[in-house]
Amino acid sequence: MINSTYPGLVWKTNKGFTIFSMFFIVFMQFLILYIITTIDTTSIITSILSQLPEKVRIFINDSFLSTLTFDGAAAFGLNHPTVIAIVAIAAINIPVRHISREIEDGTMELLLSHPFKRTSLIFKLWISGSLILLVIAVTGFLSSVFAIQIFHDLTTTIGWRLAQICINFWLLFMVIMSYTLLIATASKAGSFAGNLSAGITLMLYLLFFIGQLWDAIAFLKPYSIFTYFQPQKLMFGQGDFWGDILVLFCVALVCFAGSIWFFNRRDIP
């Protein structure tokens, strides 16, 4: 019975926000694809873009203009800042709730007084968190597939590219969850881990965007995880899918290994 297991506890604790995230993604995908198919957004946006500086125009063209096609819009639904923000909150919440807050309120002390290895706790938390994020990513994939089928025409190529985007999307948030886990296992109890992780995520997001606009810091772009998540490029067959997921997976794995190392050495106050 799932309730009698640690992953069951993780699911029960995070169920509410996970379901909200799933509904939000479905809503965004249908809304974006509905707007694209019913309103002539191309002429509106093109006229606005023509008034912007060239650098900004190129950047917006890369990031957003592609969304003016139907396929691009489907990819944009999974890259929309509000979607990123909501799923990032879900990813940050999982380790913060189950490490930082449980240490703070004393339930970690209770759990670890049982024959439950610290490594096992971190492993089960990481796997459970990954599955929760996978459920959100699969929801994103299915809602995109259904929305395209309803408003347009689903082809095998689009289906495969959407699947790639969803794997990429899942691994991006796995990385966010994993470095939050690393921070939570290495830091003191309380809200510090959540705040720091949210700050790092925002900084990496800004670094990626500013890096595209400002040449002086463009060399920092490879250090942002968002560089390895570009759904529009994947949708148009321009991205490096295998390279991106390899980088994200390795970062997640290193953070996970670091979490086990720190958690096994720390005091549970």
């Binding site: 019975m1 309730n3 009698s4 297991t5 069951g8 506890l9 029960k12 049982h114 024959p115």
Partner: peptide, 14 residues
């Protein structure tokens, strides 16, 4: 958790 779920979880850990 409910009291019963709490006991089940701890038995599960053991």
């Amino acid at each position: 958790l409910t009291g019963l779920e709490f006991f089940r979880l701890l038995s599960g850990l053991r």
